[in-house]
Structures are given as structure tokens and as C-alpha cells.
Design a protein around this nucleic acid. Structure first.
Lengths: 227, 227
DNA sequence: GCTTGTGAAACGTTTCACAGCA
DNA sequence: TGCTGTGAAACGTTTCACAAGC
């Protein structure tokens, strides 16, 4: 095995998808899976699956495939999912924030919503779940993040709130942010940011609708889509 | 001007981001913006901004920049946002579905939630908003999509529901899907799909946290997507 | 002067094709 | 035989660098 280079971001995301599929396979009692089968299910190229996994070691057996259980355990380790990751939601009084605060799917995947924040006095003090406790004022973010060892912040605030919270986030020392707010947060050396922009998702779909309206029953094989 | 090739998917998404920024600029009274300034604000390369725009025409003036108003209008046309796009939510009884059904931000961007679906008898018949009317049984999806000219479906259903709804979606003739459900839907020639996977977003952040724990340097990346 | 539009170069990711091994 | 692991090729996107034009 030679010197490995850093895996692409896309590889990390696919690992997460492989993991979910492998968990299902294990429940069904499957012992072994080939890159062919894994790729087929997810509409990927088998070589890509093998490359993705090879970034992290040699997990397969030639002529056989990958042990479902062993591969699953490896991916859990690679993604750092053995331990519970504590999460806080900023903007917990809004619709999306509340929905995420009450969403139970995170716990199944080892993420625990452990604090809630908002700046609206009407919701501060409200209790949405036992684990997360009451909604706290945003000013308390740095202290509470440290007290409760929060590792990930989920942002669901309106656009104008960014000015108010950016410095507090940086002060908090948190290292990862999942941003649903309608502005792009840039990763820096201290904080990794994943941006999810619902408007952009809908607008990119609108673009494809417009393309079809414009009538491109095509001579050439187009395939404008991605994952 | 020579033969244009198809713009990358990433370009389409950036157009959506440019559009939001341009709208803000216009409110602030700005008349002209350079690729330099636009790129600076969004942490992009100026050449990339120019290339993105050049896929669709020559909108700028050399030595000057781009007219904020004209560029904004162009992007609206490119993305097909002049007209209202009707949206339906499948899984409107769940937490995320409800939050999106009640979210008012879509309307501001010209998307109108015009129908709601669920398969839970306890929520069918419930009215969440005047425009969307009452929550309908999923069986009615194909008929209602056609009756109300729904163009985009938003999926917020649990994993096991896919078997039940996949054929109904294809039958409905809808051409675009925004999928929040924890399985990957593949685009085909009839339907474009954007996948947003909350678990994958969190797990990729967990990977970066684990990297830092292991004491490795961080390549600053960011994401979106996807897919 | 300044900024756009664009070929060409650089970079990154995916796919191919096959050696190596069970 | 069957499937993995991997260099090399193919492909796609981003960045550079500069000619063209205001």
C-alpha cells in the first residue's frame, strides 16, 4: 500500500450513503457485497466504489467482495460516528429550526440535539425536548457550547441575523456548522461549513423545467443531472 | 460568438446565489457590479463568475462591469423564475414536511405550495394553509398534480415509504423532485431529482471533526449539495 | 486606466482496463 | 473464475493570462 492522498469531499459523502445501505443489508442478513452490487444499487460506477474505499485501506477480498459487517464498522470509524456528536440549533424558534429540534432521526444516527438558541424573547425559555432543554438567548452561545461540549451548530436563521451571530459562532470555538440560512458561509481553518440552500435547490430545478419548456427533445445525449 | 456548450450544474447553482446577492444590491441602490466584487463577496474566483455568466450571453461592459438590474433580470429568465412554479409536498404530516408547508420564504421566490399529501389517516383532511388546501391521500397524487399543474414535488417521507410512492410520482408526470428522504433518487429522462440528505451533511461534518481530533490539517472545502 | 470574455493550462474527479490475488 | 486495488486515460471544472473593448 502506497502513500495515500486526501479523499475528495464527494467520497466522504458517498461513504455516508454506503453506510446507510450497508446497515440495511446487515439487517437483511447479507454477509458479503461486491462493488458491482453496491454501485448498481446507487447508480454509481463500481470502480468508483472501490476507489472510495481504497482511500482508507484494503477492506475487500479479491474474488469475493467486502464483508458487510466489517465494511460498515470501518466506515463508522472513518466518519467518526462511534461517539455521540452533540449538536445545537440556532434559530430553534423558526419553523425549520423547530422541525429539526423535534426530528428524531438524528438520534438514530448518533447525533444528539443538546442545546437550542433563538433571539426572539417570545420563544426563549420554551422547552421543545428534554435533552435540549429550554431555548436560550443567542448571547449565551459561546458559554453553553463550551459547557455542553457542542461540536456541531445547525443554523436556521433569517438572512439578516448573520451579522448578529457570526462573531458569536467564531467565539464559541465550535468546529463544524451546517448552514440552512440563505447566505453562503465560508469554511475557514477553524470551522468547516456545509451549506444547504433550499432556494437554490428549487431554483436549479426551475432551470431544468425551463429547459424542457424550451423544447430540447434532443438529438445529442444530454445528461445535465447529477446526484 | 461561437458555439456554446451546456453549462455545468455547479454554474446553475451559483446563478441562484448571484441572483440573491444582486437582489440585495439592487435594494441598496447599486447600479453596477464587477465580477471582482461579486466573486469577492462569495469567495469565488472572478474568472469563474465571468465564465458562469458567459454561458448565457455577453451581459457585461468592458471597463465597467455588469448592470445590476439587467443582470438580475437575465438570471431570472435563465432560471425560469418569471412565472410562479407550483410545488407539492409529500409527507406533509411529518415534522419536516409541515415546516416546509408553513415556510413562507418560498413564496417570496415565486414558488407556491399548492398541494399537500400524506398517507397517515390522522392528518389527511387537515388544512395547513389556504393555498395548499387540505392534506390529501397519496393515492390522489397523479390526479391532483395534473389538475393543479404542479411542477415540483418535495419529498419528506420516511425511507420505507419510497416503495409506495415511487410509481405514483412517475405516473403523475411531474418533471422535478426535491428529495429530502433518506434514500437516493436517481434522475431519469423524465424527472430531474435534487437530493438533500441531512444525515449525510452531518456525517460529513463528523468526518472533519474526526480528522481534527486525529490532529491533521484541514483543507478548507465547502459543499452543497446533493446530491 | 479598468473590466469583460475566452482560449489554454491546471487541477480534480471519474472511468477504464488490467495486474494481482483469493 | 471472480472481484479487488490501482495506474493511466478520459472527462469536467476551475483558474490563468491576455486580447478586446469601454
Amino acid at each position: 500500500m502506497t502513500k495515500k492522498q486526501a479523499p475528495p469531499q464527494a467520497t466522504i459523502r458517498r461513504l455516508s450513503v454506503y453506510l446507510r445501505y450497508l446497515s440495511g443489508l446487515e439487517n437483511d442478513g447479507a454477509k458479503v457485497i461486491s462493488s458491482q452490487d453496491l454501485a448498481g444499487y446507487l447508480a454509481l460506477n463500481p470502480a468508483q466504489v472501490r476507489k472510495d474505499l481504497a482511500y482508507f485501506g484494503e477492506f475487500g477480498k479479491r474474488g469475493v467482495g467486502y464483508s458487510v459487517k466489517k465494511l460498515r464498522d470501518h466506515i463508522i470509524k472513518i466518519l467518526g460516528l462511534q461517539q455521540v456528536r452533540k449538536v445545537a440549533i440556532i434559530g430553534a424558534g423558526g419553523r425549520l429550526g423547530r422541525a429539526l429540534a423535534l426530528y428524531t432521526g438524528f438520534e438514530k444516527r448518533n447525533f444528539k440535539v443538546s442545546a437550542l438558541f433563538d433571539n426572539d424573547p417570545r420563544v426563549i425559555g420554551t422547552v421543545l425536548s428534554a435533552d435540549a432543554g429550554e431555548i436560550c438567548p443567542i448571547e449565551n452561545l459561546p458559554r453553553i457550547v463550551k459547557d455542553r461540549n457542542i461540536e456541531i451548530l445547525i443554523l436556521t436563521v433569517p438572512a439578516q441575523a448573520i451579522k448578529e451571530i457570526y462573531d458569536l459562532i467564531m467565539l464559541s470555538g465550535v468546529q463544524a456548522v451546517l448552514n440552512f440560512a440563505p447566505f453562503k458561509l465560508i469554511s475557514n481553518e477553524n470551522v468547516v461549513v456545509n451549506n444547504v440552500d433550499l432556494t437554490t435547490e428549487l431554483e436549479s430545478l426551475s432551470y431544468h423545467l425551463r429547459l424542457k419548456e424550451a423544447g430540447e427533445p434532443l438529438p445529442t445525449t444530454d445528461s445535465t443531472e447529477e446526484e
